[in-house]
Lab assay of single mutants.
Amino acid sequence: GKELVLALYDYQEKSPREVTMKKGDILTLLNSTNKDWWKVEVKATANDKTYERQGFVPAAYVKKL
Rank of each mutant, 00 (worst) to 15 (best):
T20D: 03
W37H: 02
F56H: 04
L6W: 06
E18I: 03
W37Y: 07
W37P: 01
S15C: 08
W37L: 03
R53Q: 07
E41C: 14
E3C: 15
I26G: 00
N34L: 09
V57H: 01
S15L: 07
K49L: 13
L8C: 05
L27I: 07
Y51I: 12
L30D: 01
A46G: 12
K39S: 07
L27K: 00
V62G: 01
P58G: 03
R17T: 12
K22I: 08
K22E: 05
T33I: 09
E41W: 07
K64P: 10
N47F: 11
E52L: 15
K22V: 08
Y9F: 12
K22W: 09
L27R: 00
G1E: 13
D25F: 04
Y51N: 09
L30W: 04
A60K: 12
T33Y: 08
V57N: 01
E13L: 06
N31G: 06
L6H: 04
K22F: 08
A59L: 03
N34V: 04
E41G: 13
A7V: 09
K2A: 12
R17K: 11
T45G: 11
K63R: 12
I26W: 05
L30I: 14
D25G: 04
A59K: 06
Y9P: 00
T33P: 04
N34C: 10
L27H: 02
V42H: 15
K43G: 09
K14M: 10
V19G: 02
A59G: 04
V40W: 00
K39R: 11
S15W: 06
R17H: 13
K63V: 15
A44D: 10
K14V: 07
E3H: 11
T28A: 09
A44F: 15
A60M: 12
I26E: 03
T20E: 02
R17W: 15
A46W: 14
E52R: 14
L4Q: 11
L65W: 09
E52H: 15
Y61H: 06
K23F: 04
Y51K: 09
K39Y: 15
D25Y: 04
V57E: 01
R53G: 05
F56R: 01
A60D: 09
V40E: 00
V19I: 14
L6A: 06
R53P: 03
S32E: 14
S15T: 10
N34A: 08
Y11L: 01
K39W: 14
E3A: 08
K63D: 06
Q54H: 09
D10T: 05
K23T: 06
G1A: 12
K43N: 11
D48Q: 09
T45M: 11
K23Y: 04
T50L: 11
A46D: 14
N31I: 07
G55R: 01
Q54W: 08
K49M: 13
P16F: 09
K2Q: 10
G1K: 13
M21L: 07
W38T: 03
K63S: 10
E18R: 04
K14F: 05
A44Q: 12
Y9Q: 12
N31Q: 09
M21S: 00
T28L: 14
E13D: 04
K43I: 15
E52P: 14
V19T: 05
T28Y: 12
P58Y: 03
W38R: 00
K43H: 14
E18P: 03
K2D: 08
K2L: 11
T20V: 02
L65K: 03
D10M: 03
A7H: 01
Y9A: 10
T45V: 13
K63C: 15
S32K: 06
E18D: 05
E18M: 04
T20Q: 04
Q54D: 07
L27P: 00
Q12A: 11
Q12C: 11
K49G: 12
E41S: 14
D10C: 06
R17Q: 09
P58L: 05
V42C: 10
A46T: 13
E3I: 14
D48R: 07
R17N: 13
N34P: 04
T28H: 09
F56A: 00
